[in-house]
Amino acid sequence: MDWRLVLQSVIGGLFNGSLYGVAAVGLALVFGVAKIVNLAHGAFILLGMYLVYVLHDWTSLDPFLLAFAAILGGLAVGWLVQRGLLARLMATGQDGPLLVTLGLWIAIEAVCAMVFGSNPKTVESSLSDATFSIGPANFYWSRLVVLALAVAFTVGLHWLLQHTDLGRGIRAVSQDTTAAQLMGLSVGGLLAATMALGAAAAFFAGALSATLVPITPGAATNLLLMSFVAAVLGGLGNIKGAFVGGVLIGVVEGVGSLFLPGTMKVFIVFLVFIGFLLFRPEGLRRRA
């Protein structure tokens, strides 16, 4: 087999996977803490893409710089959604929140289609054309930047959860909501913070992918599905696991594209997904 092609596919898959990973991190956080399967996650990713597009159009700053602005946007949207739409339904079981996030998904996609139309938009980074090589394979610098930023975001989020009061509070809620409440924690506030952070991850993922794919109202669906797969692989609720899961899917896709024609590589991803749901719902590694 062509050595260059193997390298290209595997490392290319790794780069893609980092994007899946950072998107999955948000999903895993929200599921782990609020126990919500957030179907609106893809819509948040989409908003991140369009936010970067609009800001880039307006300021012509580099999209990778604007990704940090997208984090702020995500925090705001996530907080508002939790406070305004989800908080009242938290006690009624999982069906209500699932429906709300489904409705949000449909509504946000519709709004994006109404505002921006269905023509694809593109965002050019100043790095768009620059390449570097690893051995015989060539890669765009921008992919490496995406990888670095995705890792940085995940590490930052992990640090926040482990070492700050906010993070300790969120982890307390995820372990035992009632006990957290009895300890005097503001559960509603912490859930809002969780959703804000989850949406921030989605916005960030969207912002990073804005330079890589044409932006259309349906552009985030693939990323949504992949982040679900990644989050399950990592063990829904496990931040680091979700990121590793995302990277793994990217690599599986890359390797799959070596052997399989067309889009069949994605078939393998879903096969792996179903296998995990059935046989290892706790994810790649058992949690202590």
């Binding site: 209500g96 429906l99 709300v100 409705g103 998904w105 449909i106 946000i108 519709a110 289609a113």
Partner: peptide, 22 residues
């Protein structure tokens, strides 16, 4: 002029449904 308007209505209807008439 706004072909996605029906989807917006639908999405909002689902959100309303979850809140007020499950």
């Amino acid at each position: 002029a706004l072909p996605s308007a029906s989807l917006l209505v639908l999405g909002l209807a689902i959100i309303a449904l979850a809140h007020w008439f499950p």
